[in-house]
Design a protein around this nucleic acid. Structure first.
Lengths: 122, 122, 122, 122
DNA sequence: GTGGTCTAGACCACA
DNA sequence: GTGGTCTAGACCACT
C-alpha cells in the first residue's frame, strides 16, 4: 500500500479498512491484525495504527478485547449501514460539487453516461 | 461565508473564486477585491488571502499589476478550460471513490437517476 | 456477569468477590470455586482468576491450602473491617470528587436527599 | 500539579480543565494555553496535551481555530450541562457502589451526615 | 502477545 | 506561534 501525500496516513488506513470491512474481505467478528503486525505490513509506526483502531472503535466498526486483539463488530446492521453511508457521502459530495459549478444533476448524469460509453470503445 | 473545518480556509477561498470566475460572476479582465478588502469580507487573516492570490496566479487564472491590484486573466481559452478541468476532476474522483466501494459506473449512474426522480416528488 | 470496559476485569472480579464475602454470601472458612470453575463461569482467562486469588490472598481475605483449594479466612475481625474499609473508601472518594466541583458536603447531602424523595414518587 | 499513578495523565488533565471550565475559572470563549505552554506548565509531553484538547473538542467543550489556538465554547447551555453532568455522574456512581455493599441510600446519607458533624468538632 | 499510555523530538500546514 | 501528524522507542497492564 502506498500512501498519498497531503492526506494523513491514518485516514487513508481507516478508509482502507472500512472498505475491506464493507466488502466483507474482513468478516463480522473476525480478528484484525495486531497493531504491530499491521504497522509492519504498512511500513508505518505502531502508534499510527493504534490511532486507526481507536477511531474505528469510536465509530463502532470494531471493538477490542483487552489483551486479545481488535475485532470487527458482529452486528450486521452496522456493517450494512457502513457501506450505505460511505456511498451516500460520496454521492452527496459529488452532487454538491457539481451544483457549485452550476452543473445540474441531469447534466452530471449525462456526462457520466458519456464516459461509460467511451469505456466500451477502448 | 462559513468555512468547513478540516479543509484549509485558503483552499476553500480558492475554490470559491474559481467558481466565480468560471461562472463569469468575475469577468475576464475584471479587478478582484484587494487582499485587505477580501480579508475583511471573509473575516480572515490578510496573509491567507495573499496566499490565495499567489496560488491563483501560479495557475494562470489571475495576474497582478504592481500597485494596481489583481485581475482575472483575459484569455478566454484558459477560463473555458478552467471549468472543464474542475468538472473533470470532480467526476474522476467520484468514479474512483465508487469503484473503491465496488460500485460500478453503471450502478452509480442508476443511483444518481433515482435521486433525480425523487427530487421531482418533493 | 458482564464487565465494564476501561476497568480491568481482574479488579472487577476482586470487587465482586469482596462484596460476596462482606455480605456473607461467601461465609468465613467456605471454599471458593476453583480457578478453572470460576474462569468458566465468568468466561474469562484462567490466568485472570489466578491473579484475583493471588491479590485477595495478599490482602488476607482468602488463603490457599495446597491441593485443597482457596478459602475465605475465618477471622471475623478481618471480614468486618473489609466492609468498613470498602464503604469508607467510597465515601471519601465521593466527598473529594464533589469538593473538586466546588460542591460542599452539605449540598451533596441535600442532592442525595432529593434523590431519595424522588424514589418514593415512582 | 502532581499526577496520580494508575490514572492516565491525559485523563487527569481533562478532568482538571473540565473543572476549571465549569467553575468559570476558564470563561466561555476564552483562549486556553497553547499545547506547548500547557505542556511546560504541567511538565508533560506536548503530545499528551494535544490529546487532551482533541478529546475536549470531541465532547464539544472547546473548539480550535486553525493556527489561532484552542478556545472554550461560548454556548452557556453546554457549560451549564457540563457541571450538571459531572455532578450527576459522581452521585450515580456513589449510590451504585453503596448499593453493591448492601448499604441503602438512607444509610449512606446518615453516614455522610455523621462525617459532616464530625468536621465541626475538629 | 495484545492494546494503552507516554516521552522525545521532528516536520508540516495554517494564520 | 498554532495545532496536526508522524516516527522511534519505551513501559505498563491485561489475557
Amino acid at each position: 500500500m502506498d500512501f498519498k501525500k497531503n492526506i494523513p496516513i491514518y485516514l487513508q488506513i481507516i478508509d482502507r479498512l472500512k472498505q475491506d470491512i464493507s466488502l466483507k474481505i474482513l468478516k463480522p467478528g473476525e480478528k484484525l491484525m495486531s497493531t504491530r503486525e499491521l504497522s509492519i505490513k504498512f511500513k508505518v509506526n505502531p502508534n499510527t495504527v493504534s490511532r486507526v483502531y481507536k477511531e474505528l472503535e469510536l465509530e463502532n466498526i470494531v471493538f477490542t478485547k483487552r489483551g486479545m486483539g481488535t475485532f470487527v463488530v458482529e452486528d450486521e446492521t452496522i456493517l450494512k449501514n457502513l457501506k450505505k453511508k460511505m456511498a451516500s457521502d460520496i454521492i452527496t459530495k459529488f452532487i454538491c460539487d457539481m451544483k457549485d459549478l452550476n452543473i445540474s444533476l441531469e447534466e452530471s448524469i449525462n456526462m457520466l453516461k458519456k464516459i461509460e460509453e467511451d469505456q466500451w470503445k477502448i
